[in-house]
Amino acid sequence: MKILVPVKKVIDHTVKIRVKTDATGVETQGVKMSINPFDEIAIEEAVRLKERSIAHEVIIVTIGLETHQDILRQALALGADRAILVTAESATMLEEFDSLDIAQILKLIALKETPDLVIMGKQAIDDDCNQTGQMLAALLGWPQATFASQVTIESGIADVAREIDGGIERMAFQMPGVITTDLRLNQPRYASLPNLMKAKQKPIGTMKMSELNYTPRQRIVTQTVFNPPKRQSGQTLSSVSELTQRLFETLSPSS
């Protein structure tokens, strides 16, 4: 079984983001970038399936710039076999892709690589869209299992526990299909130094966007990015009875 894991390079989740003064976006210059945390969970799940001999190959793909090789090396150090980098012509072009553009490009990669399973993060922590996995499944005509917290593969069937609004849903689909990962699917490992060294030998195939014959739509366009309204800072209370009083005031209809 072959698993394709699409990943995205995002501002590290520990960084406090700053909106650019010209309101065109968020400052990324000199800011620490990492693999989207949900994608790390996807890599981990794929690698574990390989370690249990359920999968025989784990392929990472990202759509980015030449400089995105670093996250592919990182993914390879975590145990993936090889990686594909699809490069956009420019950083501006990359920023303008909407989720459907990304899903269309991933579809072309999936048709080339014919994986049995795509495992990917449920959302990227930059645009918080939560769309690409479902879109890719739809474009391929495949079933999907989103927000997975447990995955079991047996005789061509993926059994998935999904985190839903009121609890857990257990569902299954016949592969091929797309799984998107939720937080509790696994705890990703750290790459060891020897594995980081070994990852340097693993192959990364690069192709230009233009070679894929896909023209981006870019129909959902970000016009401005701005700071949300700030909350007024509050007051520190010193006694439980004062706190009780405030709680009563908050909930009484006259307030």
């Binding site: 501002i11 983001i17 968020v26 366009v221 970000t222 949300p228």
Partner: peptide, 14 residues
């Protein structure tokens, strides 16, 4: 909201 609500984006769709 984007970035966990730390920024807001105005977007248009054609």
């Amino acid at each position: 909201p984007i970035y966990a609500g730390n920024a807001l984006a105005k977007v248009t769709s054609s």
